[in-house]
Computed example of a mutant assay.
Amino acid sequence: KLPLPDASADVIITDPPYGGNVQYMELSDFWVVWLHEWINVDGVTDKTNEAITTRHRGFEGAKDLRHYRDMLYKIFKECHRVLKPHRWMVMTFHCKEFKVWSALHLAAHDAGFVMAEHDGMIYQPGIKNHEHTINLRRSGSMLGDFILSFQKVETQPRFKQIPHAEIGRQIERLAAEAVLHHQRASLSLIYMKLMPWLLNNNLLDKISEKELVPYLANSFEEKDGKWYLKANPGD
């Protein structure tokens, strides 16, 4: 629990774990061995309440997406408690896995937050020297971060039911805005354009990452990591 009274904070800025991208406490066990006398830890760290997913399953203490979402919900609920009405929780996030995005967003939604429809997600390009670090090279990582803005609300809007065909049309329309604005667009820029709409309509559980590229391929073509508008859409 945060040492703050209810409705007392103007803004919260945070940086939650990106699913299973980094196994923070497991890695910390290497240096805890030397520091245990100063940090009052006997043996390895207690990882019970760590808000991550573990990359491997089937062992005692393994953490799945349900655990990740539940832990984020508890954290975000406490953020909701201390924020003043209609104020903002802002965070950075970095992941290509739709299921991880969905877990994060649903945790925020259930805790009483709504992502801003406009400028709710801003892409921050990555640092060139970080492109080849281990955590960025693994599957599910992307270069750069997204800055997400969630507003505290008292009444949560209900998710709309959207036909699958309309989902495809909306994906193509939003992707076209990104591509036309920049003449070309990386997948990160397209994500930035798509994610607020997909998240606020709870659609990430209905469309997988593998389905996204075929949607884009209807109207765009990919060259050297960039997407361009096709001369003859539908070919």
Score class of each variant (00 low, 15 high):
residue 150 F to H: 06
residue 89 M to R: 06
residue 145 D to A: 01
residue 90 V to A: 14
residue 100 V to M: 03
residue 169 R to S: 13
residue 165 A to Y: 15
residue 190 I to K: 00
residue 100 V to I: 15
residue 146 F to V: 02
residue 175 A to R: 04
residue 182 H to L: 02
residue 135 N to P: 07
residue 178 A to C: 13
residue 91 M to S: 14
residue 165 A to C: 07
residue 178 A to Q: 07
residue 180 L to Q: 14
residue 147 I to R: 04
residue 125 P to W: 05
residue 167 I to T: 05
residue 124 Q to W: 11
residue 168 G to A: 09
residue 162 I to E: 09
residue 134 I to M: 11
residue 122 I to H: 14
residue 171 I to P: 00
residue 121 M to D: 04
residue 155 T to Q: 04
residue 93 F to I: 03
residue 142 M to R: 07
residue 148 L to W: 04
residue 109 H to W: 15
residue 106 L to T: 10
residue 99 K to W: 07
residue 169 R to W: 12
residue 95 C to F: 01
residue 111 A to D: 12
residue 130 H to F: 10
residue 124 Q to D: 10
residue 166 E to P: 06
residue 99 K to M: 05
residue 119 D to L: 13
residue 143 L to M: 08
residue 151 Q to N: 02
residue 184 R to Q: 14
residue 160 K to I: 03
residue 146 F to W: 10
residue 155 T to H: 11
residue 122 I to Y: 12
residue 137 R to Q: 14
residue 93 F to Y: 10
residue 89 M to H: 04
residue 154 E to L: 02
residue 111 A to M: 09
residue 178 A to L: 03
residue 103 A to V: 09
residue 141 S to D: 04
residue 96 K to I: 03
residue 97 E to F: 05
residue 140 G to I: 05
residue 108 A to S: 13
residue 122 I to K: 11
residue 129 N to Q: 12
residue 177 E to G: 08
residue 175 A to C: 09
residue 114 V to I: 14
residue 184 R to I: 02
residue 145 D to H: 10
